[in-house]
Write a protein that binds this DNA or RNA. Structure first.
Length: 512
RNA sequence: GCGGAAGUAGCUCAUUUGGUAGAGCAUCAGCCUUCCAAGCUGAGGGUGGCCGGUUCGAGCCCGGUCUUCCGCUCCA
């Protein structure tokens, strides 16, 4: 077996060769960190999404699903903290390659001057008996000089930020002779504004248009609809709202194939609970989500929890479920106890109450939230890289096979007439036409049977039905199993029943 | 974002010092064969990532740009 790096490369090229993933706008040289799903990828992705949706919504009577718009009122992102947190002016030191927030560098420089003042004050306090600090500060020429400088800097910086004049921000840093603490040099790049949110304009007339953002996460669509769903669905706490959908982040560095994309799909569920019970539910959902992963049948050692030590401003507990990708253990899913932060923020910014009346306690409260959030594209990559196998066969030949869990496979069954004559294609068509009502099937007549088997192996088709001369005599076909390559003969009448049972999602859901 | 490497047919790669691009596999058509990538015949497919420069002439030299990979950095 090739090493992990080669293996990953092979997975990437396999995804293109067999229609799973293409680079976006490839004929125009592509667009960095944006990918399209091809004919097989779209099916696999849809099946993974379906597995998540069914396990969340269909299997939990107190979880319902919604589909909120990508565009949201701009204030949403002020309330959520995305506008402030994602709007920092950044600058790099060219020698140390370190990146700093420009505003922090300036603040540090100001702090240094303030320290100088403090030193003067301290010295003076020692020198004079009846020291009047206030008087000293307002009369000492050196202190006044420093103080004036600080005000100048602050005003310049404020002006620059208001005008969004990044060149001026850089000039302030240059004028202050700020040096990089690591390299000690003053070799700075331009200041750049990194906003992780994509923005666009809404409104047909440009003067009236307002800036709106493409959502950087789907969660806010759930929070703003909390009361709508609770009231119209007559939901009682604890209950959950699930959603899958696209989110957009203008990542500075986006790499590793579809692991970090600028446009990606999240599958999120926000679970609303009574304050004080959140840790209980947090642990419950950790367990439930891990079960969901393990039900796929991949080795359990491929998954691990990673607890966050440094918590985001909104969370009081958080962890990731990490998966061992070919490039190492990386975050696949996040489970966060978000407290009442989001709902309270939206209450404050919207002026609307977002509270639940608890009939048992006979009182209103803002619920706490436990969130599970998984990246669909990452899940896709996890499934694909875990299923990709390069096998050496007994006869010395080799094959590439995707040992996908059958219910996730893009094509469930391939119907193959052994010969392209003698009435076999007609018989195959008949079987194919019955089976296609319940499963996505393919029928192939071209090329040798062995070649057709390998082609189906390469896209992870779990079963091949082969129609041979015996089929015409006793109405049986062979069913070939992808992983073992073993064949059984089964009656044509039983084909639908057997196939549906084996490739169905039901037995996987039953394991949850 | 910084540094390094790469980009030739769908894929993997050739094209010795600059002289108007080839192979295998794949694809398509036909024939033959039929249970794990068989064979034969034929066909299609490339403005050499893109733009510019040097040159009589550039896939090859130079500059820029885009994309990808590796390392660092960043990452709610």
């Amino acid at each position: 077996m090739a090493n992990n790096e080669d293996l990953f490369k092979n997975v990437v090229s396999h995804s293109k060769e067999y229609g799973f993933i293409f680079q976006s706008s490839e004929i125009y040289d592509g667009l960095s960190a944006v990918y399209d799903y091809g004919q097989n990828g779209a099916e696999l992705k849809k099946n993974i999404r379906d597995y998540w949706w069914r396990s969340m919504v269909q299997m939990h009577e107190n979880i319902v699903g919604i589909d909120a718009a990508i565009f949201m009122h701009p204030t949403t992102w002020k309330a959520s903290g995305h506008v402030d947190a994602f709007n920092d002016p950044l600058i790099d030191n060219k020698d140390s390659k370190k990146r700093y927030r420009a505003d922090v560098l300036i603040e540090d420089a100001v702090a240094k001057i303030e320290a100088k003042i403090a030193k003067e004050v301290e010295k003076a306090a020692k020198r004079f008996e009846n020291f009047d600090e206030k008087m000293f500060r307002s009369t000492n020429p050196r202190v006044m000089e420093y103080q004036k400088k600080i005000e100048e800097i602050n005003n310049r910086f404020k002006d620059a930020m208001e005008k969004n004049d990044l060149a001026e921000v850089r000039q302030i840093i240059v004028d202050l002779e700020v040096v990089c603490p690591v390299s000690g040099s003053r070799n700075w790049t331009e200041v750049r504004q990194f906003n992780l949110m994509f923005s666009t304009a809404m409104g047909s007339v440009s003067e009236d248009a307002s800036v709106i953002y493409l959502r950087p996460e789907t969660a806010q669509g759930i929070f703003v609809n909390f009361l709508n769903v609770q009231k119209t669905g007559r939901m009682k706490i604890p209950f959950g709202i699930a959603q899958t959908g696209k989110a957009f982040r203008n990542e500075i560095v986006a790499r590793q194939f579809i692991f970090r994309m600028r446009e990606f799909e999240q599958m999120e569920m926000q679970y609303f609970v009574k304050p004080g019970t959140e840790m209980e539910w947090y642990n419950k959902w950790k367990e439930t989500r891990m079960k969901w992963h393990n039900a796929l049948g991949f080795p359990e050692t491929k998954y691990r929890f990673h607890d966050h030590i440094k918590l985001a401003h909104y969370a009081n507990a958080a962890c990731d479920i990490e998966f061992e990708f070919p490039f190492g253990f990386k975050e696949l899913e996040g489970i966060h106890s978000r407290t009442d932060f989001d709902l309270k923020q939206h209450e404050q910014f919207s002026g609307k109450k977002l509270q639940y009346f608890d009939p048992e306690l006979n009182q209103n409260y803002v619920p706490y939230v436990v969130e599970t959030s998984i990246g669909l594209d990452r899940m896709f990559l996890a499934v694909l890289s875990q299923s990709y196998k390069e096998e050496k066969l007994e006869d010395g030949s080799s094959r590439v096979v995707l040992t996908l869990p059958p219910f996730l496979s893009p094509v469930k069954v391939a119907v193959l007439p052994l010969l392209n004559k003698d009435g076999l294609p007609e018989k195959a068509t008949e079987i194919f036409n019955r089976l296609r009502f319940s499963q996505l099937c393919q029928m192939e007549e071209k090329d040798s049977i062995g070649k057709r088997y390998r082609r189906q192996d390469a896209i992870g088709t779990p079963y091949c039905l082969t129609i041979d001369h015996q089929t015409l005599e006793d109405n049986t076909v062979t069913i070939r199993e992808r992983d073992t390559m073993k064949q059984d003969r089964i009656p044509v009448d039983k084909v639908n029943e057997i196939v549906n049972e084996r490739v169905g999602i039901e037995k996987v859901l039953a394991r949850l």
